[in-house]
């Protein structure tokens, strides 16, 4: 599997490493994907890197690669963001993978081996949901709102009504809320805020977890929040050019 830029892998690693220390990557002809729960079983993260994300991709037999994020991160730090990355996994020797970084300008090539782990893979089935509300907005804006409000309090409430979407945090000494309304005057789709809902709803989530979930803003200019009463929120980042997505499910806080 060859990626035109290592930056994509670096960003994916950054987006999951606070939640997941080790995970199985499933490789098949469609691409590479992973699903993992954090240790508290509060967040589920799913990553899909489709064949379209790669400059070249071949997977003759489906394989599962058990990756330890820490050494993987050390290896990836050796790659320049614009260097090409080739990942090689051999079906005859499933003990390790090879990673080759190529800098075409400098005619430099570096090669690494990463030992694979035998990870007991847990897999969760996510039922298809009919969401009560969906919000799409610029990912940078969502990140700023979450980062700012997480400083105010550890509970982040998201309320959707005809007023728009309201994000509220309450701490011991202060309380703050931010309201976004659907944007009509913005031309660029990536800068628009769109809100749809059937009934008004209000749900509360742990702000520190939501902060971790905003790391993926680096992968996509937009984010979609899907909510339904008393269900986990789904926060979805679609990468450009059908390259894939990263999705997080975060369990709500309840009475």
């Amino acid at each position: 599997a060859r990626l035109p830029r290592s930056a994509v892998l670096k960003k994916i690693l950054d987006s999951v490493k606070d939640l997941v220390k080790e995970t199985n990557w499933d490789c098949n002809e469609e691409g590479m994907s992973m699903q993992a729960l954090d240790t508290g079983r509060i967040v589920l993260v799913e990553v899909m890197l489709r064949e379209a994300a790669f400059e070249s991709y071949a997977c003759e037999v489906p394989m599962t690669l058990g990756i330890d994020m820490e050494p993987f991160g050390k290896v990836l730090r050796c790659a320049g963001g614009d260097e090409k990355v080739t990942i090689k996994a051999s079906r005859n020797d499933q003990d390790h993978i090879e990673l080759v970084f190529e800098n075409e300008e400098k005619e430099r090539m570096s090669a690494f081996e990463l030992k694979l782990m035998d990870i007991d893979g847990e897999h969760m089935a996510v039922p298809d949901a009919e969401w009560g509300a969906e919000i799409s907005m610029p990912s940078s804006e969502f990140k700023k709102i979450v980062m700012d409000l997480a400083e105010i309090g550890s509970d982040l409430t998201i309320a959707v009504s005809k007023l728009g979407v309201t994000f509220t945090a309450q701490g011991n000494n202060c309380k703050g809320s931010m309201v976004l309304q659907p944007s009509t005057a913005v031309d660029k789709k990536s800068e628009q805020v769109a809100i749809s809902f059937t009934e008004p709803l209000e749900m509360t989530f742990a702000a520190p977890y939501m902060k971790m979930i905003t790391k993926a803003a680096a992968l996509s200019s937009t984010v979609t929040l899907s909510l339904d009463e008393a269900c986990p929120i789904c926060v979805r980042y679609e990468m450009e050019d059908n390259a894939g997505h990263i999705k997080y499910y975060l369990a709500p806080k309840e009475d």
Binding site: L37, G40, R41, I42, V43, L44, E122, H123, M124, A125, V126, P127, D155, T204, A206, C231, P232, Y249, A251, P252, K253, E254, D255
Partner: peptide, 14 residues
């Protein structure tokens, strides 16, 4: 007082 839910309450293991 709100308590943190876990995903197993909503999803199931396969």
């Amino acid at each position: 007082m709100l308590v943190q839910g876990v995903l197993a309450e909503f999803f199931y293991y396969t």
